[in-house]
Each structure stands twice: as structure tokens, then as C-alpha cells.
């Protein structure tokens, strides 16, 4: 089985309102696939279709090779699901609640729940309804991961988690992938997904508008470069950089015998490094590419580009 999930022309109508207008994507088995898009784009609806919580109006869905509805409980035992909004209201402890979910999901290895809870810093003996949002989210993650399912479907998994726990979550995702599990997760911001995902799909208004590999995004991404050098004039430095392919937006500041140059770099790094090798550098920063920016280029049609780019960006965030 090469594809853990595939969706073809998936549509969903609630009454007369159509929220998915023909969604197509495929998730390779063993990969980490991120769906990003603003709230209301259809991420949650898509995920619920995979779990047979809602039924598509038309189109075909295959999860681990099966139709979600026909697959029934046996299929869902092989999946770990974290809902986008997690409600846990019972007057029970986390341990009791997890024991219940354990009874209705795939087999959980002994000690696995305690291990996961410890990693995430979750107290299993507290009553669930007294837990903070972040701690409820941890409980939700434990129930999704505990039976080491073949497929994890995680709707906004890092929401409510503090940065340290987010790091731990990313480590859990990488381990799961290492074990051959497939992870399908969503977020409304790319920065959360880019650390773990191999591929990202951008969902907007019920349509997938782009599917890109994260490494592809990185290659096509624009980096910022800044360096300080001595023994060269601003003019010469500018001319040197202008000869390097992919370099743009060159700005040079000269002060007290040294120059500080900033520029953008699109594409390969090697030619730039070679050019810089001839200089006497006192400082060099080559920033990690901002994938968000590359994605935003896709989000906005050419007509939107220009002065209101920043607004566009805020809106998407």
C-alpha cells in the first residue's frame, strides 16, 4: 500500500452550503502530510470525512486502502484521531478516561500511556474537566498516539501547547514517522507544520490550491543574507553581489571603514558562498528561509500583490 490516504473530488454540502468543492490529495504511507489554511477552509471537515464522522456528499475517499464507512471499527482502530476542538467534561481522571479509550481502540502496549503522559508533562490523576486547555490537548494527544496507530489524523495538534511541549510533540511525530506511521496534520500556520511535514497542502475555501514538498518550498524560498566586511568599498561589494545568480534587493551601508550589505537570495547558496570567499568578512548571517512567504506568494493571486501584501499576510495568519 503506497497511499495511506487518498481523496478524489471530495465534496461536502451541509444543507445548501458547500464547504468542500472537490478536494483532491494523496498522502504517501510513512510520510508527514500537513494541511494548512485559514479557519473555515475545510480542514476539519476533510478530517472528519476520513474518520466517517461525517459522510462526503460526493467523491471518493480511501483511508489505509479502505472506504471509511465500509472500513468501520476495524479501520478506526488503526487510526489515532485528535479532534480540532477537544471537549472532555466527565468527572473522571485522565487515567480513567484513557482506560476507556484504550478499551475501544487498538491494543496499547503496557506502560505506553504513562510514558506519553510523562513526556508531555501531563498529570493523569487530575479530573479531566479541571484540566487547562493545554493539558486537555495533551490528554487528546496521548489517546491518539497510545496504540501506535498506522495513521495519525491530528487536527491542529499544537494548539494550546506551550513551546517546550510543542517541541516534544514534534519529536513524537518524527518518532512515529520513523516507526513507519503516517501522520496527517493540520494547522492554520505553516511554521508549525514545516518542522515536521514532508509535504504541505494548502486548503482555501474548500479547495486544495497547492501541494508542495517542504524541501521544494525551501529550495524555492527566499533567504535573507547580511554580512559585514572590511577592505572593500560599497560600490565594489555591490558589483560583486550583483554578479551572483539569485541575488536581489542589495543594500549597502558604509561606515568607518567597513560595509554592511543586506540582500535576498533565491535558489542555490553555493555561488554566493564562492563570491563571499573573496571578502574579508567580520560577520555573516544567512537566515533560514521564511516558507510562510513562499506560501503567501501562492495564496495571493498576482492582482493582490503589491502595496497591500502585508495586509494579505496578516489576513492569512
Amino acid at each position: 500500500m503506497d497511499q495511506a490516504i487518498s481523496a478524489q473530488s471530495l465534496t461536502k454540502k451541509f444543507g445548501r452550503r458547500e464547504v468542500l468543492h472537490g478536494v483532491d490529495f494523496a498522502v504517501e504511507a510513512g510520510s508527514v502530510f500537513g494541511v494548512i489554511g485559514p479557519n473555515g477552509a475545510g480542514k476539519t471537515t476533510t478530517m472528519r470525512c476520513l474518520l466517517d464522522i461525517i459522510r462526503p456528499t460526493s467523491g471518493q475517499v480511501r483511508v489505509l486502502g479502505k472506504d471509511p464507512r465500509a472500513g468501520g471499527p476495524e479501520l478506526r482502530r488503526r487510526i489515532g484521531y485528535l479532534p480540532g476542538e477537544l471537549f472532555l467534561e466527565g468527572r473522571v481522571t485522565g487515567r480513567t478516561l484513557l482506560a476507556h479509550y484504550q478499551a475501544i481502540s487498538g491494543p496499547v502496549p503496557p506502560g505506553r500511556i504513562e510514558d506519553l503522559a510523562e513526556r508531555l508533562g501531563l498529570d493523569l490523576d487530575r479530573h479531566t474537566r479541571k484540566l487547562s486547555k493545554g493539558n486537555k490537548q495533551k490528554l487528546g494527544l496521548v489517546q491518539a498516539f497510545m496504540h501506535d496507530p498506522e495513521l495519525l489524523v491530528l487536527d491542529e495538534p499544537t494548539s494550546g501547547l506551550d513551546p517546550l511541549v510543542q517541541q516534544e510533540f514534534h519529536a513524537m511525530v518524527r518518532e512515529a514517522q520513523h516507526n513507519g506511521q503516517t501522520i496527517f496534520l493540520s494547522s492554520h500556520v505553516l511554521s508549525e507544520v514545516q518542522q515536521t511535514a514532508d509535504t504541505v497542502a494548502i486548503l482555501r475555501d474548500g479547495r486544495i490550491i497547492a501541494v508542495e514538498s517542504v524541501s521544494g518550498l525551501r529550495e524555492g524560498a527566499v533567504r535573507r543574507v547580511r554580512f559585514t566586511a572590511i577592505g572593500i568599498t560599497a560600490h565594489d561589494a555591490g558589483a560583486l553581489l550583483a554578479g551572483v545568480p539569485g541575488v536581489g534587493h542589495v543594500e549597502v551601508l558604509e561606515s568607518g571603514g567597513s560595509i554592511t550589505l543586506t540582500a535576498t537570495l533565491e535558489g542555490a547558496i553555493q555561488p554566493l558562498v564562492r563570491a563571499l570567499g573573496t571578502l574579508e568578512l567580520t560577520d555573516l548571517v544567512l537566515a533560514e528561509p521564511d516558507l510562510e512567504e513562499s506560501v503567501l506568494k501562492m495564496y495571493s493571486s498576482p492582482a493582490d500583490a503589491g502595496p497591500d501584501d502585508t495586509e494579505q499576510r496578516e489576513a492569512v495568519r
Binding site: L51, I53, R76, F87, I104, S105
Partner: peptide, 14 residues
């Protein structure tokens, strides 16, 4: 209504 049925149904039950 409280949102909990969704998670139960995502497990191995009909």
C-alpha cells in the same frame, strides 16, 4: 452537543 461523541465515534465502535 458537548462535542464528546465525535471522539468516541473516531474509535473502534459502531
Amino acid at each position: 452537543e458537548s462535542g464528546q461523541l465525535e471522539l468516541t465515534l473516531a474509535h473502534g465502535v459502531t
